[in-house]
Design a protein around this nucleic acid. Structure first.
Length: 553
RNA sequence: GCGCUCGUAGCUCAGCGGAUAGAGCACCGGACUUCUAAUCCGAUGGUCGCAGGUUCGAAUCCUGCCGGGCGCGCCA
């Protein structure tokens, strides 16, 4: 029995009690959950349903709990139900019930943990979207890791997800980039408003090696070439960096195509139809203050130029026209001022800003080494690049470290700590559990100890087997919660503090493969099921984080 | 000034209203002749920033204050 099954049982028992006593069935929630008490004396699972409902229906919580306990106690698989404190229900299960979780997990395999919570939802997930004017750096890296995990998690929850990278290839930034390349190619210092950093020189040299004549040519003819070649080389480099990081984008969306294809004009027409466009001082405005913005925004400046905001609006409308129900934006804390105006775009377009658009804000990341601020990057000038981070710590450690904590909290990564190949490093703690299991399974196979078709779940009765089984049973709920709250770190915390911990403790106390010449017992076989189930959960969980599950370490 | 966000062990961080607030690092003490010791077992370490409020119950929700980070353009 999984926790979800038990929760259903609790709810159905509550319904029975309500019917018997003539209580208001409308007070019952649609779903409930059971929790795992920290204190083992409080049973296998606990429910707070009586506490929550007591007041609603005017029955003392303890009295309601007593009735629920009696009803629940008669259900299959439940050994005992006790009432504690103000009305907690502490539930104990029959010995074999928890043991069946291993079969549930093994049979589901890679699908274990997937759920249908977000089935039917079409989600556009936009993240990173760094300007193609320099390498991906630390500021983007947290979202690369978290965004890609979120993509996997939302998909596991049944959503149809498209991950998207918005390329800001129109406007002044890329022009500055081109001018910087041109200056570097001619041995001049970067323009006042241009880009510094060694990569500018490197890219300029690559362009020159293809076309050495370019250096001497006037800006008029050379700049367009530096623009297009520089853009191409930079974007390729960005794609390759992200690929090395294991981050996948379904769509690379060019801002320029938005302008060239008339999407901005189209968007303004759509917004005009909704009645939120006005003219003032020769400029075209969107009255975002009709909704959640603190000031109105210019779409077309009085000199005829479209603003970046106009492209934002056009992009949002484009996404909706491509059929996405929900447009999710992952932005750094330095962009939190955009929430109001982005939501206002959706509202001005006639959408529901609470449903069709969602903006997630993540705090910034600091890097230190042994407690000291990390030296500045040579390559990017004043920031650390993703490539440098990858070189220093590797993709697995980098992704895990970044995905491990809530994006609400500012994160300080210590390079020294995450490069340690030892127990100091949480990612290895989880990966090691997986490698250990693979080793056990190899040994079992060598001994001809197969899993077979079945096992006796009652034999998995050791306290540490029980804890591990109950932990494995929580995985689908953890995935569902991570998807619902857009919080990938819950997967990492669960793997680390629950699964890997419970597995290592189990391993320490319970022999899986018989020692020496000992015969294979039914207990050994049952444990093999448990170990395979554990391997499945760790592999599935690490996959959601984009971290590898090694078979050997 | 206005707005967003964070404040939990020496450090880095968990804890979507539940029971005695957790983990890793650091520090101290134990456990390997047999499935991986990158592990396990134990000890130390807390006014959950402060003060009120909401309720059976608050680290969690509300208000105020203090402290850190960030943002407030016909810039991109």
């Amino acid at each position: 029995m999984t926790p979800a099954n038990l929760a259903d049982t609790v709810l159905s028992a509550a319904r029975a009690v309500f019917e018997t006593r003539g209580l208001d069935l409308a007070a019952l929630p649609a779903t409930t959950a059971v929790e795992r008490p920290r204190n083992p004396e409080h049973g296998d699972y606990a429910s707070t349903l009586a506490l929550q409902l007591g007041k609603k229906v005017g029955v003392a919580p303890r009295e309601l709990a007593a009735a629920l306990a009696e009803e629940l106690g008669s259900r299959d698989g439940i050994k005992a139900v006790e009432i504690a404190g103000p009305g907690f229900l502490n539930i104990r299960l029959d010995a074999a019930v928890t043991g069946t979780i291993a079969r549930t997990v093994v049979e589901a395999g890679p699908a274990y943990g997937r759920n249908e919570q977000l089935a039917g939802e079409r989600i556009n997930l936009e993240f990173v979207s760094a300007n193609p004017t320099g390498p991906i750096h630390l500021g983007h890296t947290r979202w690369a890791a978290v965004g890609d995990s979120l993509r996997r998690i939302l998909a596991a929850a049944g959503a149809e997800v498209t991950s998207e990278y918005y390329i800001n290839d129109a406007g002044a930034q890329v022009e500055r980039f081109a001018r910087s390349l041109y200056a570097a190619a001619n041995g001049h210092p970067a323009p006042e408003d241009g880009y510094g950093g060694d990569y500018i020189g490197e890219i300029a040299q690559r362009i020159l090696s293809d076309d050495p004549e370019l250096a001497g040519q006037p800006a008029e003819t050379a700049l367009p070439v530096f623009w297009s070649r520089g853009y191409e080389l930079m974007l390729t480099e960005i794609r390759e960096s992200l690929q090395r990081f294991g981050v996948h984008f379904d769509v690379w969306f060019s801002e320029k195509t938005l302008h060239d294809g008339g999407a901005v004009e189209h968007a303004i027409e759509e917004l005009r139809k909704q009645g939120h466009i006005f003219e003032e001082g020769g400029a075209i405005w969107l009255r975002t203050t009709d909704f959640t913005d603190d000031k109105d925004r210019v779409l077309i400046r009085s000199n005829g130029e479209k603003t970046y905001f106009a492209a934002d609006a056009a992009y949002y409308i484009n996404k909706r026209e491509r059929g996405f129900d929900r447009c999710v934006y992952l932005l750094g804390a330095d962009h939190h001022g955009y929430i109001g105006r982005l939501k206002a775009i959706a509202a001005c377009a006639g959408d529901d800003p609470e449903k069709n658009i969602e903006i997630l804000i993540g705090q910034l990341v600091n890097l230190v080494r042994a407690g000291q601020p990390v030296r500045l990057s040579k390559r990017a000038g004043n920031i650390i690049t993703l490539d440098e981070l990858l070189e220093a710590v590797g993709a697995d450690a980098a992704r895990y470290s970044l995905a491990r904590s809530s994006t609400d909290s500012m994160l300080t990564l210590d390079i020294e700590e995450i490069t340690k190949h030892s127990s100091d490093n949480p990612v290895f703690y989880v990966q090691y559990a997986h490698a250990r299991i693979c080793s056990i399974l190899r040994n079992a196979d060598d001994k001809g100890m197969s899993r077979g078709d079945t096992y006796d779940p009652a034999l998995l009765s050791h306290e540490r087997e029980n804890n591990l089984l109950k932990t494995l049973g929580q995985f689908p709920a953890v995935v569902a919660t991570a998807a619902e709250l857009r919080e990938p770190h819950r997967i990492a915390v669960y793997l680390e503090e629950r699964v890997a911990t419970d597995f290592h403790r189990f391993f320490d106390a319970c022999q899986v493969v018989p020692k020496g010449e000992d015969p294979v017992t039914d207990v050994n076989v049952a444990r093999r099921w448990l170990v395979e189930a554990t391997r499945t959960v760790i592999a599935n969980g690490l996959d959601l984080l984009g971290v590898s599950a090694p078979e050997r370490m």
